[in-house]
Simulated scan of single mutants.
Amino acid sequence: MDAATSGRPLRRDAERNRRRTLHAAEELFARHGLDVTLDDVARHAGLGVGTVYRRFANKEELIEALFEEKVAALAGLAERAAAAPDPGAALIDFLTEACTRHALDHGLREISLSNRYAPARIAVVKERLVPAIRTLVARAQSAGALRADFTAEDVPVVLLMVGAAADFGQQADPQAWRRYLVLLLDGLPVTRRCATALPRPSLTEEELAAATARFSPPRR
């Protein structure tokens, strides 16, 4: 545990290095996921490996320091939505924001949807999400705003689908996932008087071919 998490104040240069480390890790984790090493982080931060290891004994400590707040923000988002006056709009708003955060941050997607990296404090925060999401879904269905066969367990799969679309279209159009998010969310309400305007055009035949050539599905 570093001084920042133990309550002891860091020297100015030590705090500066800690912030550089966290900023570098945030960029790398968002772009490449959690398989990034501490050596990679040190190199990206322009710091010596020993400096990074003095602040964080291992990658799990770094992940916890970086993602606890992000996961807590998702939990808070779900809890506020679960208390919002319009249950149907609240669910759609939550899914839109949660999918956006996951599409833009590969590391957040992994930490939220997998137990591969689950430091203790993050695991506790993740437990807050489940009851809030169940409440969101139940309220929307009771209000007649959500199809009856949608379940709270569908939510992480929806996040995963949008994240996969973001990965797939990254080279052709980094914002292409927004189109598929709208297509997906428009299928959730029981009725829709008119379809939501799609925020992005479909990929061209050439872009789709290029994306397919570059895309490598995760290894099992």
Score class of each variant (00 low, 15 high):
Asp39Cys: 01
Asp39Thr: 13
Asp40Gly: 07
Asp40Val: 10
Val41Ile: 14
Val41Lys: 04
Val41Gly: 08
Val41Phe: 11
Ala42His: 11
Arg43Cys: 01
His44Gln: 14
His44Phe: 04
Ala45Asn: 02
Gly46Pro: 05
Gly46Cys: 02
Gly48Cys: 05
Gly50Asp: 05
Gly50His: 05
Thr51Trp: 01
Arg54Gly: 13
Arg55Asn: 15
Ala57Ile: 11
Glu61Ile: 01
Glu61Met: 03
Leu62Asp: 11
Leu62Trp: 13
Glu64Gly: 07
Glu64Trp: 07
Ala65Asp: 13
Ala65His: 03
Leu66Val: 15
Leu66Ser: 15
Leu66Arg: 13
Val71Leu: 07
Val71Ile: 15
Val71Cys: 05
Ala73Gln: 09
Leu74Asn: 04
Leu77Asn: 00
Ala78Ile: 01
Arg80Asp: 15
Arg80Val: 07
Ala81Tyr: 02
Ala82Ile: 07
Ala84Trp: 08
Asp86Glu: 14
Gly88Ile: 10
Ala90Ser: 14
Ala90Pro: 10
Leu91Ser: 06
Leu91His: 04
Asp93Arg: 12
Phe94Ile: 05
Leu95Pro: 10
Thr100Glu: 15
Ala103Gly: 08
Ala103Phe: 03
Leu104Cys: 07
Leu108Pro: 04
Leu108Lys: 04
Arg109Met: 04
Glu110Val: 01
Glu110Phe: 05
Ile111Gln: 01
Arg116Glu: 14
Tyr117His: 15
Ala118Arg: 12
Ala118Lys: 03
Pro119Tyr: 06
Pro119Asn: 07
Arg121Glu: 14
Arg121Tyr: 02
Val125Cys: 03
Lys126Ser: 08
Lys126Ile: 08
Glu127Phe: 02
Arg128Pro: 05
Leu129Phe: 02
Ala132Lys: 10
Thr135His: 09
Thr135Gln: 14
Leu136Arg: 05
Leu136Ile: 09
Ala138Leu: 12
Ala138Arg: 15
Ala140Ile: 05
Ala140Asp: 09
Gln141Phe: 11
Gln141Asn: 10
Ala145Phe: 02
Ala145Asp: 14
Asp149Arg: 12
Asp149Trp: 10
Thr151His: 13
Val155Arg: 00
Leu159Asp: 11
Leu159Phe: 12
Leu160Gln: 13
Gly163Ile: 15
Asp167Val: 13
Phe168Thr: 06
Gly169Ala: 15
